[in-house]
Amino acid sequence: MLRALIVAATGAVGAVAAMRGLYATALLAALIAVWIAALDLIDTRPRPPLPPPLATVSDRDEERRRLNAYLDLSPAPLVALDDGRLHVVNRAARRLLGASDFVVEPPEGLVAALADTRPGRTATIEIGHDGDVRSFALATGDLALAGRMTRIGALIDIDAELKAAEAAALRELVQVLSHEIVNALTPIASLAETAVAMLDDPEPALPRVRDAIETVARRAASLHRFGESYRALAKLPAPSVERISLAGFVSDLAALFTTRWPTITFTTDLLDAPAYLLADPDQLTAALWAVLQNAAEALHDLPNARVTLTISAFVGQTQFTMTDTGPGIPAVDQADIFRPFFTTKTEGTGVGLALARQIFRGHNGDLGLAHSLPGRTRFEGTIPSVLSN
């Protein structure tokens, strides 16, 4: 605008100068006008963007249809309370309340619950009739629409959520049971086959056969009790703590391990161990076996494979240390190894270590990965050495 004013002014000056015979002044004014006009033509400074065109009616309709499609994807029924009138917002709400927009006969208590439940809070309401009554959790929020506030409510089917949680818990229970039963039966079957093979010798070593059969009997009985507890309570039972002779307990573990993995060297260090443990023998066997099995599977086909179980007595607690000479656990996986169903094995279920930690914590102790490097992976578990009140 400033340049236009200057051009106009120089034009006027030039015209007056020409009428009065001041041709030099007129020529100078014309040159100034041409120069300013040329500057305007070659100006390359960025221009402010033009305002976007106003949305047309068809554009607004398309946006509304897109928004409605997004809302219809929500599985939770969405409703709106506007001036005391209840409206359905998405397909799930239309199906639940049997309305296309305005709900003529809202379920009893729904309008009051929407009005009284502040945003950020939840309420519970029952919706249905006859024998089909379902419980819903109501969550609300406020939106400013067309200059006034509208209360929006989302209805979450509590019954459906509970059924889904029960189904997930049942699947987890079945997987845990199958995992532990199969893993416990494998060494038992192997030890039984060894005992049969020893009986086929011309001069069988009967004491060794007896030891093998007695170990099989104890472990089978232990597995039976463990399975019965799961079946009766549908969860890991509270440990039945008793006084356990450490020597016999470790001897059974060693016999099971060396029978299952004869090519892996299994050693125990009991120099600082207590004479007795206070624990549930069945659960503690399952927990230690899960860690030892993971170590053995990591050592598969490796030369000089070794697994060591060290038990030490400390003030107020007993510590179990399990080390192996395997390749180690990748750093990216170390934070997840105790997460249920996390596994890097092709046929793994990911419940062994999760169950082992749960058992240790059920004894008021804990189980964790101390460190893992190539050639040395170390797990540490603790349980109290005295009975808690």
Rank of each mutant, 00 (worst) to 15 (best):
H129K: 01
R118P: 00
P52I: 10
L97T: 03
R134C: 00
I127Q: 06
G11K: 07
R20A: 08
L86A: 11
L5I: 10
P106N: 13
G147P: 00
M19L: 15
I32F: 13
R118T: 06
G147M: 11
R20W: 01
A146D: 13
D83E: 15
V89H: 03
L97P: 12
P46V: 15
A55S: 12
W35I: 00
T117D: 03
T25W: 03
G84C: 05
D101I: 11
L27F: 02
I36W: 07
P107L: 03
V79E: 14
V57P: 06
L114Q: 04
A76R: 08
T140Y: 04
V34E: 08
L2A: 10
N68A: 12
A37Q: 13
A55F: 07
R45V: 12
L78D: 01
E63T: 09
P51F: 12
W35H: 03
R60T: 05
D61K: 06
D132R: 11
R85S: 09
L41K: 13
G84A: 07
V133F: 04
L145C: 14
A12E: 10
L71V: 10
G141W: 07
A113M: 05
A30E: 09
A123R: 04
A146P: 07
L31Q: 05
V34R: 01
L27N: 13
Y70T: 08
F102E: 09
T117L: 01
I127M: 13
A93E: 06
G14Q: 07
I32L: 10
E108W: 08
A113V: 03
R121T: 02
L143N: 00
A8F: 04
G98K: 15
V16L: 10
L22Q: 11
G131W: 08
P48C: 08
A37E: 07
E62F: 15
G120D: 06
L81C: 04
